[in-house]
Nucleic acid binder design. Structure first.
Lengths: 150, 150
DNA sequence: GTTGAAAGAAAAGTAGG
DNA sequence: CCTACTTTTCTTTCAAC
């Protein structure tokens, strides 16, 4: 990955619809090698996918909750079951296994507090593996970026 | 936003390169109204942008850190300065204003622990507005999704 | 790496139902 | 909303340098 690749990736991270012509102007090379580089970066998995990002408020997902989860046990089968459960929940946008005080951090997106409460009481709290859930509510978004600085 | 819009948005959230022809098959309408709906959704801001998602490990961003920040004061100018600072830091991918024990949650992406330490000591800790930073390190990713369930 | 060309696909817009 | 058609643009591949 050289500087030209980085320029191409930076542009595509900002706008996936940047044409090869535009990329060639940005990268300073002609369209044919741009095409080959993009294909290579896709093939190598550096570019994972192209997606449309929606406005969460405009699709009704107004409430973001960060849930810190502690498990009852750290046996493999308990962990696997928890992972499976989380993967099946469409409201859970992100889930990280953490080092430190908590076992997992979940980013949950719901329409409102009522939906979160329902999710918590009827779904998460009923999950065998979970010992404790600490919910932190997002009041405002300062920054939300998907592009990595290369 | 009807069911057809939702089908279009769901497809584009998974793959921004889905063609109008493919969308017309998915949504059950012909290409012209698909084209018009997509344009409308873009114009209305429901679709914010199209982006390429990269493999963080393949671009060297191996370490994700969740930083919980407490400010010294909640005066407008202190808050504004903190926001400005965070927006200018390329390593900060997300920043949320929180309700509860902490004031802000930051998702920070760096190459390694050394880079994070440098960031913490030379940048964040030097920021006037910050009273305390609690760092939580991500050991593993269970789920990372950008598509909302419509 | 470059240019230029060419085939095919898709996007974008138009017209009529 | 539909079909059908047009124009323009982009993608993709090729040949030659």
């Amino acid at each position: 990955m050289d500087e030209i690749d980085k320029k191409i990736l930076t542009a595509l991270q900002q706008d996936a619809r940047t044409t090869h012509k535009e990329l060639s102007a940005i990268a300073g090379i002609s369209t044919t090698p741009v095409y080959e580089r993009v294909k290579r970066l896709e093939r190598e998995g550096v570019i994972k996918r192209y997606v449309a990002l929606l406005d969460k408020k405009k699709v009704g997902k107004a409430l973001t909750v960060i849930s810190m989860v502690t498990l009852k046990s750290h046996k493999k089968d308990v962990i696997d079951k928890f992972h499976e459960h989380v993967l099946a929940m469409p409201e859970v946008m992100e889930c990280y296994h953490m080092a430190g005080n908590y076992d997992y951090m979940l980013k949950v997106l719901v329409n409102d507090m009522e939906e979160y409460q329902k999710l918590l009481v009827e779904d998460l709290a009923r999950t065998e593996a979970i010992a404790n859930i600490q919910s932190m509510f997002v009041m405002g978004e300062v920054k939300q970026e998907t592009a990595y600085n290369l």
